[in-house]
Design a protein around this nucleic acid. Structure first.
Lengths: 210, 210
DNA sequence: TAGATTGTTAATCGATTAACAATC
DNA sequence: TAGATTGTTAATCGATTAACAATC
């Protein structure tokens, strides 16, 4: 396996490959060529082979790729079989929507707990996930493996909460607060920011400039 | 104004500029140079000037950019002052979360109505937005300007619902269904797909390969 | 005016695509 | 074996960065 620096563009495509391959599996497709896969995904066969070759040799000349095998390989690269643990901070509408509907386990994450300030939800449990008060956060993080924290809290407390968690050793954040979070000088803290507004604005641009 | 093809990379940066400039406005900053803006956003001054120059000349030599003016210009390019109209299909947890918390009006959209199949919500109103039954959808779309439809419905009905709306003339979709929607041979239908799982998987990759 | 900073042209860098020898 | 298709190297394309003349 070549261990050079993988470009962000490639990494961003991996989940799409994984998604497509999962669908092909479901359809019962056993093998596929880069050509055929490219057709389905609207990208070139060249790019597919180039992308995969960053991680190893998953195909066979004259045959193509075994769908199930390739899916497993890419899943492995993405870390879906790493058994990552995750907690959620903020159980408002969005937090609840995710707890109820998002397929965390299919993505390789187990949701260990959720935290909120509201006495109305603290002590309850949402889709099997217990909701604790914020005062219990530090203790919980210290005594459990927490790989990723989902931030579904108001903007105003986003960076402070992130800082608190970084101090506790958390190194991954899935951030829905519409604030650009960062941890200057701490390169191994990873943020994945979801900016709903940015997304809608690009759509706005495209329908305005047709 | 140059009217060449604007690359996707540039378009994707526009909302970030807009966001940053909005914040600068709030902070009371009156003028800024490409240099200083680049520092704040962690991109090169060159790129900023290159990006802006796709749309016009918004700066002044020796001075830089007027923050409020530039914000207005970019907002205009993005179409925030176009008065776009939007409806939502599906008022589950995620739909409600968006209706209650997403700043549609700040993004230049007015939410006209929501639609759902559940008798429990039909007839109610969420954050001032009336919820109608699906049977009223066609009539509503025919009698109103609908620029964008937000799809917060189950995967299984996503493409069918989209097709139905495309037939009714809808040309913009903000799609949360985790299905890659498309409208083959209909280039002026625009989809903006939000793939939560893709986002979390890239985070998974980065924490696994540190 | 002198200094600062733009808009734009040219140079560089990186990512995508094409081509092809290796091989199943 | 012959045909198909990979993995990889080379060519192309596009995007980012650097440089600088224009000018406020």
């Amino acid at each position: 396996m070549k261990k050079e620096i993988i470009s962000d563009a490639v990494i961003r495509r991996l989940p799409r490959y994984y998604r497509q391959l999962t669908e092909l599996c479901a359809r019962g497709v056993v093998r596929i060529s880069s050509q055929a896969l490219g057709q389905e995904m609207n990208i070139t066969a060249s790019q597919i082979r180039q992308d995969f070759s960053c991680f190893g040799e998953f195909g066979q000349q004259g045959y193509g790729y075994n769908v199930e095998e390739l899916r497993a390989e890419i899943g492995h690269i993405l870390g879906v079989d790493n058994g990552h643990h995750l907690i959620m901070i903020g159980v408002g509408n969005l937090g609840r929507a995710l707890l109820r509907n998002f397929p965390f386990s299919q993505t390789g994450f187990s949701v260990e707990a959720a935290f909120d300030i509201s006495p109305t939800v603290v002590g309850s449990s949402i889709n099997g996930v217990p909701v604790y008060g914020m005062s219990e956060l530090d203790g919980f993080v210290r005594s459990h493996d927490v790989d990723v924290v989902v931030l579904t809290i108001p903007q105003s407390v986003a960076q402070d909460t992130a800082n608190r968690l970084i101090d506790l050793g958390v190194r991954g954040f899935w951030n829905f607060t519409n604030v650009e979070l960062s941890s200057p000088g701490n390169d191994d803290v990873k943020f994945e920011n979801i900016h709903f507004a940015d997304s809608l604005l690009t759509l706005s641009y495209r329908i305005a400039n047709r």
